[in-house]
């Protein structure tokens, strides 16, 4: 067998691929489910924190800033490991899926809060004053005048950050979630052949390549005219 044949037999083995493709596809849907959950809860929580912060209650803001800084400084894998392997020491245990969901949601929440808050502060003061002087209340001003402008401003950084954190779903393989990478690694250890990893990498490309290209488009579409 030539080197090339051996390479093909290792990484593109049709028999192994056929056997483990269903597992990797199952992992693909699980990755999408996990990513969807993280995006929903993470963005919602981040937006909620930014709105809370705009109320300007000092002690509350300190708390928010601390929590945000905490989850921006901690590596996501450390948070996942702490929840999954640490909590049982306190008599609480959670599934790998729940640990990954909660951890990455907290991380996305932190980054989203920071980005949305930067957007809110970037809306000129006059917008607030004008809206309030027309008789809108604080909540109405925030919801109908400030947030729409702020959110539009932060679409590119928010999109990029969300994509980056969503790729962290692969970390869930460390806590035994059979998402794409977990399923692929299981396949490698059963078959003694790296073809399932090739399938896994392809699955990630199918999932994320369009997203990355969309991110490029969003960046151009909402670009700042300098």
């Amino acid at each position: 067998m030539s080197n090339w044949d051996r390479f093909l037999d290792s990484f593109f083995n049709a028999r192994v691929a056929a056997e483990y493709l269903p597992k990797v596809i199952e992992g693909f849907w699980l990755t999408i489910l996990l990513a969807g959950c993280i995006i929903l809860t993470g963005l919602a929580a981040g937006l909620a924190l930014a709105v809370l912060r705009s109320l300007g209650i000092r002690p509350l803001n300190w708390l928010i800033i601390f929590v945000v800084d905490l989850f921006r400084a901690l590596p996501p894998l450390v948070v996942i490991v702490l929840l999954y392997f640490g909590l049982p020491a306190a008599g609480l245990s959670m599934s790998g899926f729940a640990a990954a969901w909660l951890s990455l949601s907290l991380v996305l929440m932190a980054f989203a809060e920071e980005i949305v808050w930067a957007g809110i502060t970037a809306v000129p003061r006059g917008q607030w004053e004008a809206a309030r002087s027309t008789g809108l209340g604080f909540a109405q001003t925030l919801g109908w005048v400030v947030l729409p402008q702020a959110l539009r401003m932060v679409v590119p950084p928010l999109t990029n950050r969300t994509i980056a954190i969503t790729k962290g779903t692969a970390l869930a393989s460390v806590v035994a979630v059979q998402e794409i990478l977990g399923a692929a690694q299981a396949g490698v250890s059963f078959s003694f052949n790296p073809t399932p990893l090739t399938l896994g990498a392809l699955a990630y490309l199918v999932l994320f390549l369009p997203v990355v290209i969309l991110g490029r488009w969003v960046e151009a579409r909402f670009a700042w005219k300098r």
């Binding site: 692969a170 460390v174 690694q185 790296p194 990893l197 990498a201 997203v211 990355v212």
Partner: peptide, 15 residues
């Protein structure tokens, strides 16, 4: 940018 870093790492290390 599309491949999660951990996937790349596992691919290099285990593949």
């Amino acid at each position: 940018r599309s491949l999660p870093p951990l996937v790349l790492l596992v691919f290099v290390y285990a593949g």
